[in-house]
Nucleic acid binder design. Structure first.
Length: 489
RNA sequence: GGCCGGUUGGUCAAGUGGUUAAGACACCGCCCUUUCACGGCGGUAUCAUGGGUUCGAAUCCCGUACCGGUCACCA
């Protein structure tokens, strides 16, 4: 199984799972599925201050929600564990000792203040800020002196001079770096915990990762990692750096741009597959014109060759369109299930309803299915079925009731309503027909006053659909109240 | 500032030397309809910029501008 494709998603549990992380995970997952490979989930929790267990949970839950599963990693295990970096410290130590012994790494006793001063001096001199190698060649005496002072050293990687660091990026093609532009970087912090650029190499190598697909912000880190691969005698994997997701103002997506975490979209009632479909189209495009994909179709069509180099602006409008598309395709049962928590939260139902009440709620909710883009929009879309005390939405709406034909229409309507044996779509339709015939008024002059009197609004669902749901009694009451308010009767 | 990457309509994007430069979202119009929504049809709008190379350039080369990433004991 030496040529098995293995990818990984390696998030840091330092915050709510970000939409950009979801896309990285998705691209890795699609590639693995496409090539029949394996996906590893590794948690990079070496930032002790910011890593939190609840964020790890948040990430895992979001991945599961999106339908992105992993074959190896935290929770599911696998042959190359543990899959949490803080549980792998002894592994890193072994390699660190090796690098130290070979002189490829060295102890650095510079304090944060000293390093800061160096950076500032360099910047002031118009040079690039980087570590100049102060502790590169410490004598045993100097080291002993620092140790005696109680200084805790970091371990730095000795970056060789004049080395060309070139790799072929799956997305960007051949990328060159020169080792001279890189200062000796810290691989083990003073507290003994490895840094990202170091641990990631050991883990990816030991976990036999063949393709490292990650965000573009890591592109400049790659040469450092290449150096570590080479120093440790590890085989370099393939790299693919996907572009960043930007906000409307073309700046990197952040909280300012609205919802950035997966959770927020879940809470707003977006469908996981809609998000997946949308994210897949952000930075990747099929060769044909297809926009809507099932997961299987996505896997089949996905190809790293068509991953875009340029960053993409997150367009909520398009996400909404995709989500609305999937919502329209839902079964009534699924749509009701989606609506339920939002309806409960709005106070329109308790969630305990049964029988007729439940049946009525189902019908009401069903009217929203072609109108909403995501779950949170459902309560406002059905609000008119729950609120009998409404005002006229606009003056224009109120004016509709001032037309001289209105009293006649209303009288007839109330009469028809009182005489109706049952109140379903066809009977309501017949009622309007009768009124139209008798009064010889066009549809607008019959329907619109009734609509305004019934809802206070000139727009809304079909009356033929709405009146049966409201029932004769509420219909009558609502309309009479409106007429009174308008000063008619 | 150094290094690295990027630039096709408002947005996502197809395109790899010869196309009327696809498609989608958004927008506008028309149709359907008692209204809105849904749906259907149609429309406006793009190769950042300046030089090359070439019979011919969105496509290849160089410069410029702009945007982004990175230069941490964060990942």
């Amino acid at each position: 199984m030496d040529n098995e494709i293995r990818v990984r998603f390696a998030p840091s549990p330092t915050g709510p799972f970000h939409i950009g992380g979801a896309r990285s995970a998705l691209f890795n997952w699609l590639l693995a599925k496409k090539l029949g490979g394996k996906m590893v989930l590794r948690i990079e929790d070496t930032d002790r201050d910011r890593s939190k267990p609840e964020y790890e949970e948040n990430i895992k839950n979001a991945l599961k929600w999106l339908g992105i599963n992993w074959d190896e990693g935290v929770d599911v295990g696998g042959p190359y564990g543990p899959y949490r970096q803080m549980e792998r410290l002894d592994i890193y130590k072994k390699y660190t000792d090796q690098l130290l012994a070979e002189g490829k790494a060295y102890y650095c006793y510079c304090s944060p203040e000293e390093l800061e001063a160096e950076r500032e001096a360099l910047t002031a001199a118009g040079k690039m800020p980087r570590y100049m190698g102060k502790c590169r060649n410490l004598t045993p005496e100097q080291r002993a002196k620092f140790e005696a002072e109680g200084r805790k050293p970091t371990i730095r990687f000795r970056v060789p001079e004049g080395v060309d660091l070139t790799f072929n990026d799956l997305v960007r093609g051949e990328v060159h770096f020169d080792s001279d532009g890189i200062g000796d970087f810290v691989i083990v912090k003073a507290d003994g915990i490895p840094t990202y650029n170091y641990a990631v190499v050991i883990d990816d190598s030991l976990m036999h990762i063949t393709h490292v697909i990650r965000a573009e912000e890591h592109l400049s880190n790659t040469p450092r990692q290449l150096l570590v691969y080479d120093a440790l005698g590890f085989k370099r994997p393939e790299f693919g750096h996907i572009s960043l997701i930007l906000g409307k103002d073309k700046k990197k997506m952040s909280k300012r741009h609205g919802a950035t975490s997966c959770d927020q979209y879940r809470q707003l009632g977006y469908l996981p597959h809609a998000l997946v479909n949308f994210l897949a189209l952000l930075g990747w495009a099929p060769t044909d014109e297809q926009e809507i994909f099932t997961t299987e179709e996505l896997i089949k069509a996905f190809n790293m060759k068509h991953v875009a180099k340029n960053p993409a602006v997150f367009d909520i409008e398009k996400l909404n369109w995709i989500n609305a598309h999937y919502i329209k395709q839902m079964t009534p049962e699924d749509f009701f299930a989606l609506a339920k928590p939002f309806m409960v939260k709005a106070g329109y139902m308790t969630g305990e309803e049964t029988g007729e009440k439940l049946a009525w709620l189902e019908k009401v909710v069903a009217t929203a299915q072609t109108q909403v883009e995501f779950g949170a929009q459902i309560p406002p879309a059905v609000a008119l079925y729950f609120n009998d005390n409404f005002d006229f939405e606009t003056q224009e709406a109120a004016d509709v009731l001032k037309e001289e034909t209105v009293p006649t229409v209303m009288d007839m309507f109330f009469k028809e309503l009182a005489e109706a044996a049952t109140l379903d779509g066809p009977t309501v339709k017949a009622m309007f027909k009768t009124i139209q015939k008798t009064t010889k008024l066009n549809g607008k002059h019959v329907y619109m006053p009734v609509r305004v009197a019934l809802t206070g609004n000139q727009h809304g669902p079909e009356l033929v659909e709405m009146i049966p749901l409201l029932g004769a009694e509420r219909t009558k009451q609502r309309m009479e109240a409106s007429l009174k308010k308008a000063g008619i009767k």
